[in-house]
């Protein structure tokens, strides 16, 4: 029979934590799916526009920039592809990254009610968050593919690799999100700070304009780990050569150990947070 011991000390090694965490992720796969299904169904059952709302944010940002360039208000260096497509693909992948950074915290926060009352594998919340991201992203990608044909870029085989890049983006965002989650659940300031900071971060990432040829901005943008994600995704869409592929893969490789550490951190911190939430 399974024996559980609850006490103050945790003498678990980090490896044991990884193992427990991964085991719980596997065991709670049905719960994760069920939670994601529940939220997705509930989200769209009470709305007529439903799925369309997923597009509106990236479309709006893209349209603002399309308008700014086409009206000549601002002058951007040539991007090599039709600008609307450039802007839309950028804002789209950007919105996916933002959503995945916020996802662990949002999923956990939304489950406050059951967290303080029922003991279940909390990892399921993270995984259900990822499911929801994948669902929302896939809808956005369909729209993007439509754009690709409308603007006459046409089909490239690399388009098939786009889901992999998006999965990478989600992995990156979730890893980052996991580290923010414990403290973010305690203090509301954190989520405000994140959304505030991300606004600025967008301008040092080639989301709506290309990396300048030289200068300070060139250095910052080249170092920014989100740059290779955005650029590689865009390269897959338009079929140009993925110059940042190596950097992109490196970011992912670095992400994996951090993801595990994030999961372990999450596992340790949940009881402490539940205590403060319910106290």
């Amino acid at each position: 029979m399974k024996t559980r011991i609850y006490k103050k000390e945790n003498r678990l090694s980090i490896l044991q934590l990884f193992k427990d965490s991964l085991k719980d992720i596997y065991n709670s796969r049905f719960l994760a799916r069920q939670l994601a299904e529940r939220d997705i169904k509930a989200q769209y059952r009470q709305s007529y526009l439903g799925i369309l709302w997923a597009f509106i944010q990236p479309l709006a940002t893209a349209f603002v920039w399309i308008f700014l360039t086409s009206s000549g208000t601002i002058n951007l260096s040539d991007t090599g592809i039709p600008y609307p497509l450039y802007a839309f693909s950028g804002t789209l992948i950007w919105s996916i990254i933002i959503a995945s950074i916020n996802s662990p915290m949002q999923s956990t926060n939304a489950a406050r009610g059951i967290l303080t009352k029922i003991n279940f594998p909390k990892e399921a919340l993270i995984v259900s968050g990822i499911y929801k991201l994948l669902f929302n992203s896939s809808i956005k990608v369909i729209l993007l593919v439509l754009f690709v044909f409308i603007y006459g870029v046409g089909f490239h085989w690399s388009l098939l690799a786009l889901p992999l890049v998006i999965f990478g983006a989600i992995l990156f965002g979730t890893t980052l999100g996991l580290f923010i989650t414990p403290i973010g659940l305690l203090y509301k300031d954190v989520s405000k700070l994140i959304s505030f900071g991300m606004q600025f971060l967008m301008y040092v990432t080639p989301v709506v304009y290309a990396i300048p040829k030289d200068g300070l901005m060139n250095t910052i943008m080249n170092w920014n780990p989100i740059t290779p994600i955005v650029l590689t995704a865009r390269d897959m869409v338009v079929g140009s050569s993925p110059d940042y592929l190596f950097y992109f893969l490196m970011v992912l490789v670095v992400c994996i150990p951090f993801l595990l550490i994030g999961l372990a951190l999450y596992r340790i911190s949940i009881p402490i947070i539940v205590e403060r939430l319910s106290a």
């Binding site: 559980r4 011991i5 609850y6 006490k7 103050k8 967290l115 303080t116 009352k117 029922i118 003991n119 009881p271 402490i272 539940v274 205590e275 319910s278």
Partner: peptide, 10 residues
């Protein structure tokens, strides 16, 4: 098992 004790064990 929702919260950890500060002393003792379960």
């Amino acid at each position: 098992g929702l919260i950890n004790p500060d002393a003792g064990s379960v």
